[in-house]
Write a protein that binds this DNA or RNA. Structure first.
Lengths: 224, 224
DNA sequence: GCCTATCTTGACGAATCCTTGACGCCGTTG
DNA sequence: CAACGGCGTCAAGGATTCGTCAAGATAGGC
């Protein structure tokens, strides 16, 4: 049976979630604050974690970071605020998905299913092909016109992130914190330099990129 | 059968609504003041709430806030006054839609259906489709006629808020404080400019918008 | 120590995006 | 009828952000 750990300090919401999740076949364990939740996560080894950001003792993002330091378990975040700042912070810290309160229980269940589905097969096809080049994620090789393209470690790291999320917009912060670390969140000129190098090596027409698309002010997107 | 909770202190209106709603296949429960209505909402778990603002004991916005603190149930507000102040207050407190008395029963039924449609489909996949365009919230992509539409960060931010709340009337203040920050609450010209740009990019007939609807003096609404 | 590959940093026009004001239209009010 | 407020439209600036280049800085191999 799938094990779920629910972390929330609101006893009513905790009870409601426990009942609903158990009714849908999950094994539920709960925690009401950050410290005990970290213990519970180590002991129960849940398949997915549901975390409320408004905890009494620890900051929500700290809990996420602690968890992420030793476990890849999917984390679904609940928050009362509608603003997008804490959303971005939580996702940057390593959360996988996000719901704003109040939310419908069917929506919660749907997102839970989606997270579990994703964690079961994390690597679909390790080979991505476009009409200009081919990326083999397993072999760490990029081919263009039959010959392989030399990429530096940093170039490869950036390309890998973009290619693993086809069609999806990857935030500047996501790229920076993934490649250079969270403290480089404002060095957007790094991105400009390396995107330019990737384009020069991969795009047929450098000044008219068709696969590495920039979204001004937000981030970049890979289009197959 | 769909459960509706009607909250009103006028016995005649209450009786008329009960009869009409039951005749259209709804299961109706009623309450005549704020306190008993909150109890009834917890016990009956209605699919939608119809709330008259002029209650004897509690302020209407307080009832909305109480409900919203634990439930995402759609709230349809009735009010006698024609002014837009209480309208905006109720919507800011978390109401979903609004009708001014006196109102036609067919209009009430139409709005009820619209709100229920929204609550039945709680964005299982974060993809919203209309007959003119498709919004993918996860990938941050908008498709129209198969091609993707290029949106600026601010345009996307506004569209996301509206699309995440289908059929809901979103206040000007809600949009402004979410996108530009709380101190921009009176710069309604921003809304006019960006709504116009969104319509130009998304609506088939710009001068006759069918999905991005403006409610004069109050706000905007997304209709799927 | 020297050489090479890679990464960092700064600067500059160019492209994109946001802000702001003006104008006309429409429905409502007095 | 005239005045008014809310809305849609447009375009011109000003502010950000992007692409590009090249010159140090750093690290690793020989």
């Amino acid at each position: 049976m799938t094990a779920v750990l629910v972390i929330d300090d609101d006893p009513y919401l905790l009870r409601a979630l426990r009942i609903t999740l158990q009714a849908h076949g999950y094994a539920v364990s709960t925690a009401a604050d950050g410290r005990s939740s970290l213990l519970a996560a180590r002991q129960n080894a849940p398949a997915v974690v549901i975390l409320d950001l408004g905890l009494p003792d620890l900051d929500g993002t700290s809990v996420i970071r602690e968890l992420r330091s030793w476990s890849p378990v999917p984390i679904l975040v609940l928050s009362a605020r509608h603003g997008s700042e804490d959303k971005v912070q939580a996702l940057d810290a390593g959360a996988d998905d996000y719901i704003t309160k109040p939310f419908g229980l069917d929506e919660l269940l749907a997102r839970l299913r989606a997270l579990l589905r994703r964690s079961i097969d994390p690597e679909q096809t390790p080979v991505i092909t476009t009409d200009a080049f081919t990326v083999d994620l397993a072999k760490r090789v990029v081919l263009r016109d039959g010959r392989d393209v030399r990429l530096t470690p940093t170039e490869w790291h950036m390309l890998e992130i973009l290619v693993r999320n086809p069609e999806k917009l990857v935030t500047q912060q996501q790229l920076l914190s993934e490649v250079w670390g969270p403290s480089y969140a404002k060095e957007t000129n790094y991105l400009r330099v390396y995107i330019a190098q990737l384009r020069r090596k991969l795009e047929p027409d450098t000044s008219n990129p068709r696969h590495l698309i920039t979204e001004a002010g937000v981030g970049y997107r890979f289009r197959p």
